[in-house]
């Protein structure tokens, strides 16, 4: 469903050029849930933005359902949608929930908007009372539910998730993750999830890839992650670091290049 091969993304030019993504390759099968994990600046979000079509300056292959991303193909909006990290920045401040959800239907000339919007709100656990609110009348978790509903309005087959819970309260994070899990099953979604949180990835994904400095260090399945049996030293270090701050671990951290 998703195919990425020798993906290269460079920001800037000349001496200031930064190779954000260096030769990344992976594939995600239909219905699979794949995680990209890594620390800040590892290039995981850049890979996601390439697939979302928001970064068109890449080299290599980035395909969804056999269609190259970021090349203006009109079929892509109904095939792939994305949920952004910050629910405070991903909803238009002057659009009501109703308008945010009906706009994609309007763009693609899909009728029956009224019923579809009501159903979508129902599906993400927001009642009809929320329908005509503005984003500033919603909490962070409610906003993220609206953003998820919006991403599903066009009934895409692939959902890209960019740290969908990291901007939320811990108490809300689990709700959103469970909602995503449920929707994945009911919509038979293929999911690509980017996160720095190994627990989130282990909870959500079948398979994952660990990224460091723009390259994939290791690919494994979640079972291996849960058994804490990674092969690569970088992954082992990431796993240790994710268990919370520990003076001994912090002192032993190494930079892998």
């Amino acid at each position: 469903m998703i195919r990425v091969e020798d993906l290269e993304v460079t920001f800037g030019a000349g001496r200031d050029a930064v190779r954000a993504v260096r030769g990344v390759s992976f594939a995600v099968a239909p219905g699979e849930s794949f995680g990209l994990v890594g620390e800040s600046g590892s290039g995981k979000s850049t890979v996601l933005r390439v697939l979302a079509g928001l970064n068109t300056r890449y080299r290599g292959v980035a395909e969804i359902g056999g269609i190259a991303a970021g090349r203006g193909d009109r079929r892509l909006p109904r095939l792939v949608q994305m949920v952004f990290q910050d629910p405070y920045g991903s909803l238009h401040p002057r659009h009501t929930v109703d308008r945010a959800l009906s706009e994609p239907l309007e763009i693609h000339g899909i009728g029956d908007a009224n019923a579809r919007v009501a159903r979508a709100l129902e599906e993400v656990g927001l009642g009809p009372a929320f329908r005509f609110r503005y984003p500033n009348q919603l909490s962070g978790g409610q906003r993220q539910r609206v953003a998820i509903a919006r991403a599903l309005m066009l009934e895409p087959k692939v959902l890209l998730l960019d740290e969908p819970t990291s901007a939320l309260d811990v108490s809300v994070q689990a709700e959103i993750l469970n909602l995503l899990k449920r929707l994945r099953a009911s919509h038979r979604l293929t999911i690509l999830l980017v996160s720095h949180n190994l627990a989130v990835i282990a909870h959500m994904c079948d398979r994952l890839a660990v990224m460091n400095r723009g390259a994939i260090v290791e690919e494994m399945d979640s079972e291996a992650l849960r058994r804490a049996a990674p092969r690569e030293p970088y992954t082992r270090q990431l796993l240790l670091a994710s268990r919370g701050y520990d003076r001994a671990v912090a002192a032993g951290l190494v930079t892998y290049d």
């Binding site: 928001l54 909006p77 792939v80 991903s90 706009e103 994609p104 763009i107 991403a151 066009l154």
Partner: peptide, 17 residues
Amino acid sequence: GSDYIAAARMQGAGTLR
């Protein structure tokens, strides 16, 4: 550069819209 504009672009909204 905001996410809600990126979201609109992903939904296939044209420049004029």
